[in-house]
Write a protein that binds this DNA or RNA. Structure first.
Length: 502
RNA sequence: GGCCCCAUCGACUAGUGGUUAGGUCAUCACCCUUUCAAGGUGGUAGCACGGGUUCGAAUCCCGUUGGGGUCACCA
């Protein structure tokens, strides 16, 4: 193992969407592998046929790739350690299970669900830890079940599971990269089922075998697996294999510090994608939930490449971290502010085009869908939006006529003489040869000065009639971008529909 | 309940025996400003508690409390 190339894996079960906690686990595995110039692999753990969801495997991988986490080996990509789907490796598990049976490290168990449940209830009632009572542990392994009876059941074809025999009176010890030494007493470890009655292995058995066969050097997974670590270690010992190094990540938490769950917000990466968060921000955010550069660094914004360069398991914290959307939102804004215009245009254009199929625009389509126009909108709006799609939805007046005028704004800014003033000023705008921000501003001030009025008496109404709302970018620049024709049309419409409310 | 893990501002965290306990988000105030943002300045706010060890503990040890995970033929 020394000097061996680092290999890590993310091993989700295809039961649905990708959980943000899963994304972070995948990310840390990926970052660590890449940092060490090693390999990152995706393996699908579909040993529970009942929970398998059609299409989940594909969407899981797709979402990871969307986030920039691309595997070196996976079910779709293949690799020399395949197959990478556990349901396609059944014969492998069967072989290793037989070996454990032969070596008396595992035994057949014919107990029914009812029997087990009854036993469990009894133990709980007695205040004991629910554990299998070893009724079917054979005589030759220290139990009380005669081989003949086991043989008979087997011959009759009764359904059975295969359990591992946890050694008595030993302690299992290991060193967690994040947590340090952890110790368990074997008395607290149950005789875990290795093979289910449907012939499929359990997670514990399959993952240990695959982790070994696929030559992973480091297992990085959530803390919820910490307590099943001793079972896995025992299996490695039974087989005489060297266990990989392990790191158990702290959990992601709800605001109330319970394990991050639905009910209290979105947990699926897909939910965040749908809301408009970018991969940059989500990766950055999730990376900082439990890891930091340390050494006095005050950097908050990291690219994937920077994360790879700086990541280390030693600097992963031990305590759970609350998934705080406020910080995510802030990060998203940071990325929007610094994202190159072309990239934003590429994202915005399809959104706009979809909108244009729903709604009619009075503006020239070729103009408003041009890169040139979109670039101008972006420059005016990039510090004012929280998501990329808001370039279209939040400031829709750059593409569509205002459908209404903000009532409160009108009430506050529309005076008795506003319509008249606007009408007069329109005449000036009409004559403008150069419809530029500077020119508009100069003429507006010129118009207003002799009347000893403040520019605000026109500025606010102009914003209302052209945008419909009371907030937005610099008015003059906004008018310039909208263009003379549109501005004149909207002023006219505004004067016609808005009336002074005393 | 047994076992295991964890514990610095509301949130994410820096800190590894000597710091006015630092940064970011959020929040508050002010500045900038036609609006909204962005930006700038400043503020509020934290070492869960109790014992040790030590000249000296956020830092080391023990305990308490609190939180979490896990105890399936689910992963």
């Amino acid at each position: 193992m020394i000097g061996q190339r680092v290999r890590t894996r993310f091993a989700p079960s295809p039961t649905g969407y990708l959980h943000v906690g899963g994304l972070r686990t995948a990310l840390y595995n990926y970052l660590f592998a890449k940092k060490m110039q090693g390999e990152f692999i995706i393996r699908i753990e579909d040993t529970d046929q009942g929970r398998k969801v059609e299409g989940a495997q594909k969407s899981l991988i797709k979402t990871l790739e969307w986030a920039g986490i691309v595997a070196d080996e996976s079910p779709e990509k293949g690799g020399k350690f395949g197959p990478y789907v556990q349901s396609e490796r059944l014969d492998i598990y069967a072989g290793y299970c037989q070996q454990l049976l032969d070596d008396q490290h595992a035994y057949y168990c014919f107990a029914s669900h009812e029997e087990l449940e009854e036993n469990r209830q009894l133990q709980i009632k007695q205040g004991l830890q629910p554990k299998y009572n070893r009724k079917w542990l054979p005589e030759e392994m220290g139990g009380s079940m005669p081989p003949s009876l086991i043989r008979k059941k087997l011959d009759e074809g009764d359904p059975y599971v295969i359990r591992m025999k946890v050694p008595d009176y030993i302690s299992v010890w290991f060193e967690d990269i994040i947590r340090g030494p952890v110790e368990f007493d074997s008395a607290t470890i149950d005789d875990q089922v290795l093979m289910k009655s449907d012939g499929f292995p359990t997670y514990h058995f399959a993952s240990v075998i695959d982790d070994h066969l696929m030559e992973f050097t480091h297992i990085i997974r959530g803390e919820e697996w910490l307590s099943s670590m001793p079972k896995h270690l025992l299996l490695y010992e039974f087989f005489g294999w060297e266990p990989p190094k392990v790191a158990h990540l702290p959990l992601l938490l709800n605001a109330d510090r319970s394990k991050l769950s639905k009910r209290q917000g979105d947990v699926a990466v897909e939910d965040y994608v749908r809301k408009g968060y970018s991969a940059d921000a989500i990766i950055n955010f999730v990376a900082m939930l439990g890891w930091n550069e340390g050494e006095g660094s005050e950097q908050e914004v990291y690219s994937m490449d920077q994360l790879i360069e700086k990541f280390s398991l030693e600097r992963v914290g031990k305590a759970g971290a609350v998934f705080n959307v406020d910080k995510l939102n802030w990060l998203e804004k940071q990325y929007i502010k610094s994202r190159p215009g072309e990239k934003l245009i590429a994202v915005i254009k399809p959104i706009l085009q979809a909108e244009l199929e729903q709604k009619k625009s009075l503006m020239p389509i070729e103009t408003i869908t041009s890169d040139d126009y979109l670039a101008k909108v972006i420059e005016l709006m990039r510090e004012r939006v929280g998501f990329e799609h808001e370039f279209v939805t939040f400031s829709s007046y750059f593409f569509f006529e205002p459908e209404s005028y903000d009532e409160e704004a009108v009430k506050k800014r529309w005076a008795v003489d506003t319509s008249v003033l606007l009408h007069e000023f329109t005449a000036i705008l009409y004559t403008l040869e150069e419809f530029s921000a500077e020119n508009i501003e100069a003429h507006l001030k010129e118009f207003v000065a002799p009347k000893s009025l403040k520019a605000a008496v026109l500025i606010h109404p102009l914003r209302i009639v052209t945008s419909g709302v009371s907030f937005g970018p610099s008015l003059y620049h906004m008018l310039e971008v909208l263009g003379k024709e549109t501005v004149l049309r909207r002023i006219q419409k505004g004067i016609e529909t808005i009336s002074f409310q005393p």
